[in-house]
Protein backbone atom coordinates (compact mmCIF):
# COMPACT_ATOMS: atom_id res chain seq x y z
CA UNK A 1 0.00 0.00 0.00
CA UNK A 2 3.06 2.27 -0.08
CA UNK A 3 2.53 5.56 -1.92
CA UNK A 4 -1.23 5.43 -1.75
CA UNK A 5 -3.10 7.73 0.57
CA UNK A 6 -5.80 5.63 2.19
CA UNK A 7 -7.94 8.59 3.18
CA UNK A 8 -8.61 9.50 -0.38
CA UNK A 9 -9.71 6.07 -1.76
CA UNK A 10 -12.53 4.08 -0.16
CA UNK A 11 -14.16 0.72 -0.90
CA UNK A 12 -17.61 1.28 0.44
CA UNK A 13 -19.88 4.27 0.57
CA UNK A 14 -21.18 4.49 4.16
CA UNK A 15 -24.14 6.29 5.75
CA UNK A 16 -21.62 8.28 7.84
CA UNK A 17 -19.87 9.58 4.71
CA UNK A 18 -23.19 10.77 3.38
CA UNK A 19 -24.26 12.58 6.55
CA UNK A 20 -20.82 14.07 7.26
CA UNK A 21 -20.23 15.23 3.69
CA UNK A 22 -16.99 13.22 3.62
CA UNK A 23 -18.07 11.57 0.39
CA UNK A 24 -17.10 14.72 -1.44
CA UNK A 25 -13.42 14.30 -0.37
CA UNK A 26 -12.88 10.66 -1.21
CA UNK A 27 -12.25 8.60 -4.26
CA UNK A 28 -14.00 5.26 -4.70
CA UNK A 29 -11.89 2.27 -5.50
CA UNK A 30 -12.54 0.88 -8.94
CA UNK A 31 -14.33 -2.48 -9.13
CA UNK A 32 -13.77 -5.15 -11.69
CA UNK A 33 -17.27 -4.69 -13.02
CA UNK A 34 -16.83 -7.59 -15.41
CA UNK A 35 -16.22 -10.15 -12.64
CA UNK A 36 -18.86 -12.79 -11.89
CA UNK A 37 -21.20 -12.10 -8.99
CA UNK A 38 -22.40 -14.86 -6.64
CA UNK A 39 -25.31 -16.83 -8.10
CA UNK A 40 -28.72 -16.29 -6.57
CA UNK A 41 -31.94 -18.05 -7.52
CA UNK A 42 -34.85 -15.95 -6.32
CA UNK A 43 -38.41 -17.14 -6.31
CA UNK A 44 -40.13 -18.15 -9.54
CA UNK A 45 -43.26 -19.86 -10.61
CA UNK A 46 -42.96 -23.53 -11.61
CA UNK A 47 -42.71 -23.81 -15.39
CA UNK A 48 -45.62 -26.22 -15.64
CA UNK A 49 -47.67 -23.78 -13.58
CA UNK A 50 -46.59 -20.99 -15.93
CA UNK A 51 -47.84 -23.08 -18.84
CA UNK A 52 -51.13 -23.78 -17.02
CA UNK A 53 -51.57 -20.07 -16.29
CA UNK A 54 -50.87 -19.23 -19.89
CA UNK A 55 -53.55 -21.69 -21.01
CA UNK A 56 -55.96 -20.22 -18.46
CA UNK A 57 -55.25 -16.68 -19.68
CA UNK A 58 -55.96 -17.68 -23.26
CA UNK A 59 -59.20 -19.42 -22.33
CA UNK A 60 -60.46 -16.59 -20.14
CA UNK A 61 -59.67 -14.25 -23.02
CA UNK A 62 -61.81 -16.45 -25.28
CA UNK A 63 -64.76 -16.10 -22.89
CA UNK A 64 -64.40 -19.30 -20.84
CA UNK A 65 -65.35 -19.52 -17.14
CA UNK A 66 -63.29 -21.74 -14.85
CA UNK A 67 -64.76 -24.88 -13.22
CA UNK A 68 -63.74 -26.42 -9.91
CA UNK A 69 -64.67 -29.75 -8.32
CA UNK A 70 -63.53 -32.91 -6.58
CA UNK A 71 -60.51 -35.01 -7.50
CA UNK A 72 -62.02 -38.04 -5.75
CA UNK A 73 -65.44 -38.55 -7.28
CA UNK A 74 -68.14 -41.11 -7.98
CA UNK A 75 -67.71 -43.18 -11.11
CA UNK A 76 -71.14 -41.84 -12.00
CA UNK A 77 -69.71 -38.37 -12.68
CA UNK A 78 -66.42 -39.66 -14.06
CA UNK A 79 -67.79 -42.29 -16.45
CA UNK A 80 -71.50 -43.14 -16.38
CA UNK A 81 -72.65 -39.63 -17.30
CA UNK A 82 -70.19 -39.80 -20.19
CA UNK A 83 -71.96 -42.85 -21.61
CA UNK A 84 -68.93 -45.01 -20.89
CA UNK A 85 -70.26 -48.59 -20.61
CA UNK A 86 -69.45 -50.17 -17.28
CA UNK A 87 -67.50 -52.97 -18.94
CA UNK A 88 -65.36 -50.51 -20.94
CA UNK A 89 -61.66 -51.43 -20.65
CA UNK A 90 -60.84 -47.97 -19.25
CA UNK A 91 -63.11 -48.69 -16.29
CA UNK A 92 -61.27 -51.82 -15.23
CA UNK A 93 -58.80 -52.06 -12.40
CA UNK A 94 -55.96 -51.65 -14.86
CA UNK A 95 -56.62 -48.02 -15.70
CA UNK A 96 -58.48 -46.66 -12.73
CA UNK A 97 -57.43 -45.66 -9.22
CA UNK A 98 -60.26 -46.95 -7.05
CA UNK A 99 -60.24 -45.50 -3.54
CA UNK A 100 -60.76 -47.43 -0.35
CA UNK A 101 -63.60 -45.21 0.93
CA UNK A 102 -67.36 -45.83 1.23
CA UNK A 103 -69.55 -45.07 -1.83
CA UNK A 104 -70.65 -41.50 -2.53
CA UNK A 105 -73.45 -40.51 -0.15
CA UNK A 106 -75.69 -38.66 -2.57
CA UNK A 107 -76.31 -38.69 -6.31
CA UNK A 108 -79.26 -36.94 -7.98
CA UNK A 109 -81.69 -39.89 -8.27
CA UNK A 110 -83.61 -38.73 -11.32
CA UNK A 111 -80.41 -38.09 -13.21
CA UNK A 112 -79.11 -41.53 -12.22
CA UNK A 113 -82.30 -43.08 -13.62
CA UNK A 114 -82.00 -41.16 -16.88
CA UNK A 115 -78.32 -42.09 -17.25
CA UNK A 116 -79.06 -45.76 -16.55
CA UNK A 117 -81.84 -45.67 -19.14
CA UNK A 118 -79.48 -44.11 -21.71
CA UNK A 119 -76.99 -46.93 -21.10
CA UNK A 120 -79.64 -49.65 -21.31
CA UNK A 121 -82.08 -48.32 -23.93
CA UNK A 122 -80.30 -45.44 -25.66
CA UNK A 123 -82.08 -42.10 -26.17
CA UNK A 124 -84.55 -41.04 -28.83
CA UNK A 125 -86.89 -43.32 -30.75
CA UNK A 126 -84.16 -44.79 -32.93
CA UNK A 127 -81.67 -44.99 -30.10
CA UNK A 128 -80.05 -48.23 -28.90
CA UNK A 129 -78.30 -48.80 -25.59
CA UNK A 130 -75.23 -50.80 -24.80
CA UNK A 131 -75.33 -54.53 -24.35
CA UNK A 132 -73.36 -54.19 -21.15
CA UNK A 133 -74.21 -54.59 -17.48
CA UNK A 134 -75.13 -51.45 -15.51
CA UNK A 135 -75.01 -51.44 -11.75
CA UNK A 136 -75.71 -48.49 -9.45
CA UNK A 137 -73.14 -49.73 -6.94
CA UNK A 138 -70.40 -49.28 -9.53
CA UNK A 139 -71.71 -45.80 -10.35
CA UNK A 140 -71.51 -44.87 -6.66
CA UNK A 141 -67.96 -46.16 -6.12
CA UNK A 142 -65.41 -43.42 -5.52
CA UNK A 143 -62.21 -43.19 -7.57
CA UNK A 144 -59.64 -40.61 -8.57
CA UNK A 145 -60.96 -38.91 -11.68
CA UNK A 146 -59.42 -40.16 -14.93
CA UNK A 147 -60.40 -36.94 -16.68
CA UNK A 148 -61.80 -33.57 -15.67
CA UNK A 149 -64.83 -34.23 -17.86
CA UNK A 150 -66.34 -35.22 -14.49
CA UNK A 151 -66.41 -31.49 -13.75
CA UNK A 152 -68.09 -30.77 -17.08
CA UNK A 153 -70.79 -33.31 -16.17
CA UNK A 154 -71.31 -31.75 -12.74
CA UNK A 155 -71.63 -28.30 -14.33
CA UNK A 156 -73.82 -29.33 -17.27
CA UNK A 157 -76.17 -31.21 -14.95
CA UNK A 158 -76.63 -28.11 -12.81
CA UNK A 159 -75.34 -30.11 -9.83
CA UNK A 160 -72.40 -27.73 -9.42
CA UNK A 161 -74.89 -24.88 -9.02
CA UNK A 162 -73.96 -23.01 -12.19
CA UNK A 163 -76.49 -21.46 -14.57
CA UNK A 164 -76.45 -23.52 -17.76
CA UNK A 165 -78.65 -21.50 -20.10
CA UNK A 166 -76.87 -21.34 -23.48
CA UNK A 167 -74.56 -19.84 -24.53
CA UNK A 168 -71.83 -20.85 -22.08
CA UNK A 169 -68.12 -21.55 -22.23
CA UNK A 170 -66.36 -23.37 -19.40
CA UNK A 171 -62.84 -24.71 -18.80
CA UNK A 172 -60.52 -26.18 -16.22
CA UNK A 173 -56.80 -26.90 -16.09
CA UNK A 174 -56.63 -29.47 -13.33
CA UNK A 175 -55.13 -32.80 -12.41
CA UNK A 176 -56.34 -36.20 -13.59
CA UNK A 177 -55.13 -39.66 -12.61
CA UNK A 178 -54.38 -42.68 -14.82
CA UNK A 179 -53.04 -45.99 -13.67
CA UNK A 180 -50.37 -46.08 -16.37
CA UNK A 181 -46.69 -47.01 -16.33
CA UNK A 182 -44.50 -44.13 -15.24
CA UNK A 183 -42.06 -43.32 -18.05
CA UNK A 184 -40.52 -40.25 -19.72
CA UNK A 185 -43.80 -39.25 -21.37
CA UNK A 186 -46.40 -40.72 -18.99
CA UNK A 187 -47.19 -39.70 -15.44
CA UNK A 188 -49.71 -41.29 -13.10
CA UNK A 189 -51.14 -37.83 -12.50
CA UNK A 190 -51.06 -34.99 -14.97
CA UNK A 191 -52.93 -31.84 -15.89
CA UNK A 192 -55.76 -31.89 -18.36
CA UNK A 193 -56.97 -28.81 -20.18
CA UNK A 194 -60.70 -29.31 -20.49
CA UNK A 195 -63.06 -26.97 -22.29
CA UNK A 196 -66.59 -26.94 -23.61
CA UNK A 197 -69.00 -24.63 -25.36
CA UNK A 198 -72.76 -24.83 -24.93
CA UNK A 199 -74.76 -23.11 -27.67
CA UNK A 200 -77.60 -23.63 -30.13
CA UNK A 201 -76.76 -25.32 -33.42
CA UNK A 202 -73.03 -25.86 -33.06
CA UNK A 203 -71.29 -27.55 -35.94
CA UNK A 204 -68.05 -29.38 -36.50
CA UNK A 205 -66.81 -26.19 -38.17
CA UNK A 206 -67.35 -24.20 -34.95
CA UNK A 207 -65.33 -26.80 -33.08
CA UNK A 208 -62.52 -26.59 -35.61
CA UNK A 209 -62.56 -22.78 -35.51
CA UNK A 210 -62.35 -22.70 -31.73
CA UNK A 211 -59.35 -25.03 -31.66
CA UNK A 212 -57.53 -23.17 -34.41
CA UNK A 213 -57.91 -20.02 -32.36
CA UNK A 214 -56.75 -21.68 -29.11
CA UNK A 215 -53.70 -23.47 -30.53
CA UNK A 216 -52.63 -20.46 -32.58
CA UNK A 217 -52.03 -18.73 -29.23
CA UNK A 218 -49.27 -21.28 -28.60
CA UNK A 219 -47.75 -21.02 -32.05
CA UNK A 220 -49.36 -24.25 -33.25
CA UNK A 221 -51.00 -23.79 -36.62
CA UNK A 222 -52.06 -25.98 -39.56
CA UNK A 223 -54.17 -28.24 -37.35
CA UNK A 224 -55.30 -31.56 -38.77
CA UNK A 225 -58.53 -33.14 -37.63
CA UNK A 226 -58.48 -36.93 -37.72
CA UNK A 227 -61.92 -38.51 -37.32
CA UNK A 228 -61.86 -40.49 -34.10
CA UNK A 229 -64.07 -42.47 -31.76
CA UNK A 230 -64.95 -41.67 -28.15
CA UNK A 231 -67.90 -43.23 -26.36
CA UNK A 232 -69.08 -39.74 -25.31
CA UNK A 233 -68.66 -37.59 -28.44
CA UNK A 234 -69.80 -37.87 -32.05
CA UNK A 235 -68.40 -36.70 -34.36
CA UNK A 236 -65.02 -36.97 -32.60
CA UNK A 237 -61.61 -35.77 -33.68
CA UNK A 238 -58.05 -36.26 -32.66
CA UNK A 239 -56.18 -33.04 -33.20
CA UNK A 240 -52.75 -33.08 -34.76
CA UNK A 241 -50.42 -30.12 -35.03
CA UNK A 242 -46.94 -29.32 -36.18
CA UNK A 243 -44.27 -28.97 -33.50
CA UNK A 244 -43.19 -25.32 -33.69
CA UNK A 245 -39.47 -26.16 -33.67
CA UNK A 246 -39.01 -29.76 -34.86
CA UNK A 247 -41.77 -29.69 -37.47
CA UNK A 248 -42.95 -33.11 -36.29
CA UNK A 249 -46.70 -33.85 -36.53
CA UNK A 250 -47.94 -34.69 -33.03
CA UNK A 251 -51.26 -35.42 -31.42
CA UNK A 252 -52.33 -32.45 -29.37
CA UNK A 253 -55.84 -33.18 -28.23
CA UNK A 254 -59.10 -35.05 -28.46
CA UNK A 255 -62.42 -33.39 -29.15
CA UNK A 256 -65.97 -33.71 -30.35
CA UNK A 257 -69.63 -32.88 -29.92
CA UNK A 258 -71.18 -34.56 -26.86
CA UNK A 259 -73.53 -37.38 -27.86
CA UNK A 260 -77.29 -37.16 -27.28
CA UNK A 261 -76.89 -40.06 -24.80
CA UNK A 262 -74.72 -37.69 -22.72
CA UNK A 263 -76.75 -34.51 -23.13
CA UNK A 264 -80.36 -35.72 -22.95
CA UNK A 265 -80.09 -37.26 -19.47
CA UNK A 266 -78.46 -34.01 -18.30
CA UNK A 267 -81.46 -32.10 -19.65
CA UNK A 268 -79.38 -30.14 -22.17
CA UNK A 269 -81.27 -29.32 -25.36
CA UNK A 270 -78.60 -27.25 -27.09
CA UNK A 271 -75.34 -28.60 -28.54
CA UNK A 272 -72.11 -28.93 -26.58
CA UNK A 273 -68.66 -29.26 -28.09
CA UNK A 274 -65.80 -30.26 -25.85
CA UNK A 275 -62.14 -31.07 -25.89
CA UNK A 276 -59.32 -32.29 -23.69
CA UNK A 277 -55.56 -32.00 -23.89
CA UNK A 278 -52.69 -32.96 -21.60
CA UNK A 279 -50.99 -29.81 -20.35
CA UNK A 280 -47.67 -31.67 -20.05
CA UNK A 281 -47.83 -32.38 -23.79
CA UNK A 282 -48.21 -28.69 -24.48
CA UNK A 283 -45.28 -27.99 -22.13
CA UNK A 284 -43.07 -30.59 -23.82
CA UNK A 285 -43.98 -29.13 -27.20
CA UNK A 286 -43.15 -25.62 -26.06
CA UNK A 287 -39.86 -26.43 -24.28
CA UNK A 288 -38.71 -29.60 -26.00
CA UNK A 289 -38.31 -31.51 -22.71
CA UNK A 290 -37.57 -35.19 -23.07
CA UNK A 291 -38.41 -36.54 -19.63
CA UNK A 292 -41.49 -35.10 -17.97
CA UNK A 293 -40.38 -36.54 -14.62
CA UNK A 294 -37.61 -33.91 -14.43
CA UNK A 295 -40.32 -31.28 -14.22
CA UNK A 296 -43.39 -32.63 -12.44
CA UNK A 297 -43.14 -34.46 -9.12
CA UNK A 298 -40.65 -35.16 -6.36
CA UNK A 299 -37.98 -36.45 -8.78
CA UNK A 300 -37.80 -32.96 -10.29
CA UNK A 301 -34.44 -31.38 -10.93
CA UNK A 302 -34.23 -27.97 -9.25
CA UNK A 303 -31.48 -26.90 -11.60
CA UNK A 304 -33.66 -27.59 -14.64
CA UNK A 305 -36.51 -25.63 -13.05
CA UNK A 306 -34.13 -22.79 -12.24
CA UNK A 307 -32.43 -22.66 -15.63
CA UNK A 308 -35.45 -22.98 -17.92
CA UNK A 309 -36.29 -19.72 -19.62
CA UNK A 310 -39.48 -18.15 -18.30
CA UNK A 311 -42.55 -18.17 -20.49
CA UNK A 312 -43.39 -14.91 -22.19
Amino acid sequence: MAGIEAAETVDQLTPEMLTSGEWDDVEFAEYNVEADAPEIEGGRKHILRQTADRAKDVLVGMGFQEMDGPHADADFWINDCLFMPQDHPARTHWDRFALDVPPIQELPDQLVDRVESAHREGVGEDGDGYHSPWDRDFAEAVALRGHTTSLSMRYLSGFAGADIEPPKRYFSVEKVYRNDTLDPTHLLEFFQIEGWVLAEDLSVRDLMGTFEEFYAQFGITDLEFKPHYNPYTEPSFELFGEHPTTGEIVEIGNSGLFRPEVLEPLGIEADVMAWGLALERLLMLMYGFEDIRDVHGTLCDLELLRETEVLQ
Binding site: V60, P167, R169, V204, R205, G209, T210, E224, P227
Partner: peptide, 18 residues
Protein backbone atom coordinates in the same frame (compact mmCIF):
# COMPACT_ATOMS: atom_id res chain seq x y z
CA UNK B 1 -64.04 -33.67 -42.48
CA UNK B 2 -60.82 -31.98 -43.56
CA UNK B 3 -62.79 -30.38 -46.42
CA UNK B 4 -64.69 -28.29 -43.88
CA UNK B 5 -63.75 -24.64 -43.33
CA UNK B 6 -63.20 -23.86 -39.66
CA UNK B 7 -65.18 -20.88 -38.37
CA UNK B 8 -65.10 -19.19 -34.98
CA UNK B 9 -68.53 -19.57 -33.33
CA UNK B 10 -70.38 -16.30 -33.19
CA UNK B 11 -71.40 -16.69 -29.55
CA UNK B 12 -70.65 -14.11 -26.87
CA UNK B 13 -69.77 -15.24 -23.33
CA UNK B 14 -67.90 -13.65 -20.42
CA UNK B 15 -64.75 -15.41 -19.20
CA UNK B 16 -63.38 -15.54 -15.68
CA UNK B 17 -61.46 -17.47 -13.05
CA UNK B 18 -62.88 -19.51 -10.20
Amino acid sequence: FNELDPRYPDVGTVGGRH
